[in-house]
């Protein structure tokens, strides 16, 4: 009798429950299926088209492709054209220096967040997140107002008698750099804060108790433990700035050619789709190379985390 009752209770779960269980078990690829579908539609297919455009010569007639032959010519043309080299170098320089400056300015803010009281923390969070709530374009135009020939900065400097002639900042490399750093700073600060506040605050106290100065603690405890945050922040800022379009376009005054603006011109103005797709490929491959380098560096400095599985 009792056995029968027990048997009845351990009947297998219903089909719906089984599906839900399988989805949430974390095993297999099921939870990723929606993302895979979306990515295939919006990324993989366009990418395939991009590849086929970049590696083929084709003849068009009335907006339709009539013949298509495989060819490396667009790639070899691009790699031998000094304009490409200069442009990609400019993009790379801009992205690397923006990343470095964001880290330089962002790290102290994250450190302040870590060591500060509750009000400091709140203030930093508000100041970091608030800019993200306004569009990048709006913020970029704000810099126009500040840095322009008759902008806030020049008026102030002139008034103070520090300069006798308006500085030309707009439409220069400097304007682009300033705008880029300001716009991407939160993207650096947030991962830093997230990683730093994950660690036990007792570690800092232990370090001081063991005789470390503030600098010693920063160098030997806080910095090594924040490496994953530095890695994530740098990867994000680099990717965003290396492929950026809006800021160079507005603050560079239309004559600041970087990779993204070049692709835009090739595709939209000169309708050279093959050139555009080759440029995009180069942009993507070089970006990935830097990301891999960042990942390797991050890994190298966080070897200790591998101990968890060993």
């Amino acid at each position: 009798m009792a056995e029968a009752a027990i048997h009845r209770r351990i009947t297998p779960p219903g089909f719906g429950e089984q599906v839900a269980d399988a989805l949430l078990s974390g095993r297999g690829i099921w939870p990723a299926v929606p993302a895979i579908v979306v990515l295939t539609v919006v990324a993989v297919i366009p990418f395939a088209i991009l590849l086929s455009l970049g590696f083929s010569d084709f003849e068009m007639s009335r907006g339709a492709i009539i013949s298509q032959t495989f060819s490396f010519s667009h790639l070899t043309n691009a790699l031998t054209d000094p304009l490409y080299w200069i442009t990609f170098q400019r993009s790379m320089n801009l992205a690397l220096s923006t990343t470095a400056l964001c880290l330089l300015f962002g790290y102290p803010v994250a450190y302040l967040f870590l060591t500060g009281g509750p009000w400091t923390k709140r203030l930093i969070l508000v100041l970091t997140i608030a800019p993200l709530l306004t569009s990048g374009i709006v913020r970029t135009y704000a810099w126009l107002v500040i840095l322009g020939g008759r902008g806030v900065l020049n008026s102030a400097l002139l008034q103070a008698g520090l300069i006798d002639q308006a500085l030309r900042i707009m439409n220069t490399h400097w304007a682009v750099l300033i705008g880029m750093v300001q716009i991407h700073l939160p993207v650096m600060i947030l991962p830093l804060i997230a990683v730093m506040s994950r660690h036990d605050s007792r570690l800092v106290e232990a370090s001081e108790n063991l005789g470390a100065s503030r600098i010693g603690t920063l160098r030997t405890v806080i910095l090594p433990l924040s490496v994953p945050g530095i890695g994530t922040g740098s990867a994000l800022v680099f990717t965003l700035t290396y492929t950026t379009f809006v800021v160079p376009q507005i603050l560079g005054g239309g004559n600041y050619l970087n990779a993204a603006t070049m692709i835009y011109e090739q595709v939209v103005f000169s309708l050279e789709w093959s050139k555009g797709s080759v440029s995009s490929l180069i942009l993507m491959v070089t970006c990935l190379m830097v990301l891999v380098a960042i990942a390797l560096l991050t890994n190298h400095f966080t070897k200790w985390t591998k101990g968890h599985d060993a």
Binding site: H199, D200, R202, L203, E205, A206, S207, E208, N209, L210, G211, A212, S213, G216, V221, P224, L225, T302, W304, T305
Partner: peptide
Amino acid sequence: VNRRPVGVVFQSYALFPHLT
């Protein structure tokens, strides 16, 4: 703190996870 001749053993140990 760092000049006091006092050693603290914390409840959570507070070992540095990144150091051997």
